[in-house]
Design a protein around this nucleic acid. Structure first.
Lengths: 239, 239
DNA sequence: CGAATAGTGTCTTTCAGACAGTATGAC
DNA sequence: GTCATACTGTCTGAAAGACACTATTCG
């Protein structure tokens, strides 16, 4: 019978079989009216040279917790500072990585593509933005197609009952542009009147004195009040 | 420059610093009109002797994936076969376990307390059911209070827009009993008429020819059609 | 009968969907 | 003027909340 001190003294994590644990991230942005994700060409084995979503090991020295690890990876790839970041789920099995039993903690991030800061990113020449539709047709490393699909499903679900897509917009935007973003994510047209009512009743947007000429009539520009991350609509969009 | 085969030949997981990864589970049941959780007295260091929620390492040989690992742990403790099981989230940081950087994949399960099968459980003398309210006042191992709170929050949220609490009910139950379960979880009274309308419109319950005398008038007994795990109400309960 | 529990009828409120209508500015 | 885009007025319908009402059984 040992006490806890003795136990810890003799404890060595490497005596145990533990799964390889990584953090992976689907980074979404709207590019040319398409929901797109950032892909990176792997420069390490295994699956070297394949396209993959950003991710990798937790740095047990630098990272305080897994959210910090996720923010770090996001900043390394995009230079974006505090985007919307949410954990989706954790997948783990013995087949997804050739090295053996592995676990990935999956996150997704929503960023405004204009905020990408190339000067702060590393290896940007290995990064590319691809529409989700295209990405799912390409050969990706590991089970990353599944990961993209899981993140996309979560984003679609949340778009049905929250105002989350505001996180994908630039600083100033029109209601029509915001509606287009919703429709791009949902893959479905929404009734104009209901959309405007929902969004305006939500009280998460500030009208600005600016307007934008996007074709014919001027459209009013709005900006986020920052409350949209927590806003839940009183009813779900029926799809 | 090595190829993938050579890479794998030289690869040894124990050359890397990887976090300790475990699966933990909050098992909910309704006991005497209270939402309760199963706690187990730890018989291993660290925190030996402390109460904790069930959990532990993934068995890299036996478990195909993390869901299987979770089902295995659940069966070991309760003997219940295919209860509702859902992943909540994954927590990981350097402080939660004295052994160092650790990650837990948190699940919750909903079971009917009558289905507990003592003959199939191991170490049942170390298990005890405690109301959530009490559990959160007791000293628990690691960050298990936080884990219980996270699982409870998820359950409360889902109870607002799905019929999930049906999973906590015995085979036959009255609408009043089901409403009591909803109210126990939400910590709030619900209007009778709306509740019955919602539940009956959902088409997830079968009326039976049985009835129950629970005081004065007979109440009709219903049973689940098994569709409730997927049912989403058209509107959220406003709390 | 009264008390207690089960269950209903129906009015109001809220908010999404439908859809026709108006407003503004480029040409 | 026309056309395209922005935006509104208003009706309908679905479903939740409020609350008074009826039904059944025990004692």
């Amino acid at each position: 019978m040992t006490n806890e001190k003795q136990f810890l003294k003799n404890y060595n994590i490497h005596d145990y079989d533990i799964p390889l644990t990584t953090v992976d991230m689907v980074i979404f942005a709207i590019i040319e009216a398409e929901l797109s994700v950032l892909l990176v060409k792997r420069d390490e084995h295994p699956e070297k040279g394949c396209l993959a979503i950003p991710g990798g090991f937790i740095d047990l020295r630098k990272d305080q917790d897994i959210d910090v690890a996720a923010y770090r990876k996001l900043f390394e790839k995009t230079g974006v500072n505090s985007p919307y970041l949410e954990q989706v789920e954790t997948l783990g099995n013995k087949k997804r990585d050739i090295r053996g039993w592995s676990v990935t903690i999956l996150y997704y991030a929503l960023i405004d593509i204009n905020k990408i800061n190339q000067t702060h990113t590393e290896n940007s020449e290995r990064c590319q933005w691809v529409s989700v539709e295209q990405a799912l047709k390409m050969p990706l490393a590991f089970d990353h197609k599944l990961l993209i699909t899981k993140a996309q499903n979560r984003l679609v679900e949340k778009t049905r009952y929250t105002a989350l897509p505001v996180e994908l917009m630039p600083e100033f935007f029109t209601l029509t542009e915001l509606q287009n973003t919703f429709e791009t994510i949902l893959g479905k047209k929404l009734p104009i009147k209901s959309f405007r009512r929902r969004i305006l009743a939500a009280n998460i947007l500030e009208p600005t004195d600016k307007s934008k000429l996007s074709g014919k009539r001027h459209a009013q520009l709005f900006k986020s009040t920052g409350l949209d991350r927590k806003y839940y609509f009183p009813r779900t969009l029926v799809l």
